[in-house]
Amino acid sequence: MTGTQTGAPKAGAAADIAAIEADFASLGYICNADIATSIFLSQRLEKPVLVEGPPGVGKTELAKATAQMLGKPLIRLQCYAGLDESKALYEWKYGKQLLYTQVLKEKLGDLMEGTKGLKESMTRLHEFDDTFFSEEFLEPRPLLKALWSQEGAVLLIDEIDKSDDEFEAFLLELLSDYQISVPELGTIRAKHTPIVFLTSNNTREIGDALKRRCLHLYIPFPDSELEQRIIATRVPEVQANLRAELVAFVQGLRKLELKKQPAVSETIDWARTLVLLHARELDAELVRRTLNVLLKFQEDIDNVDSDVNALVAQSREASARLVG
């Protein structure tokens, strides 16, 4: 740890981060420097990234974009309560093993030919011992696939907060050393260190041990400027003034007390909806009719109803300031 303050040129880092940001942008994933820095660090430090944030801000999308950018396959593991290692790591191909045993049963006589006594037969059998528990009969699941992948991979462990604590503990070995222990085969190391993303919606607190092994990235709702850029990339058909208006409206909506706040994905959906309806600008009537795209609870829709007029007026002002 003595060499941390080396005199090596650091300008490279800033340039690299900017390059990552630009690459993401060319893939249609608009991000800020914060996100780009985390990708840069995870690549260089070979550390997993734990991505947290409200639903719909593009946590999963980040992993996809990274895979695309690096030209590596994306291996995804969706977590849920009850997920265990036979579904996440590996499983033996029982069926195949069974079938082979059946076939071999007939050959058994040939194999045992010439052996005298039980002891000798056992020795003979031992020679075939490990065939049934070799990689031949191993069914790799996402985690193992990621470790085995020849050209490296991007591993996305999605919604880790939905899994059980036991599974979280099970991941620790993988995350710190990129290796996994299979009782029958020994320790399996990664051929190429995969880039690992874990996402969490914070439905429960992730354990400290896991957090310690990861870099932590929190993606909040984007600010107005970033959200405009996102909409411009994702829904290019929408005109500048409408875009400014609708983003301002959503931003205003997020300030209200809601059961579920509209995320970026909802803004995108809404922009698409408005394009389909040939809307040129926001008006209260239009907003009321399409509010169900943004808000997913009837309670929220009812609550917002009274604020719609004020919000529309506000967003028009904001847009006029931007465009004019």
């Binding site: 080396t6 650091k10 300008a11 800033a14 820095t37 430090l45």
Partner: peptide
């Protein structure tokens, strides 16, 4: 943090 620091340096405050 030390490793990250070695990578990015003190030059750019935001980074």
């Amino acid at each position: 943090a030390g490793r990250a620091l070695a990578l990015v340096g003190y030059d750019d405050r935001t980074t």
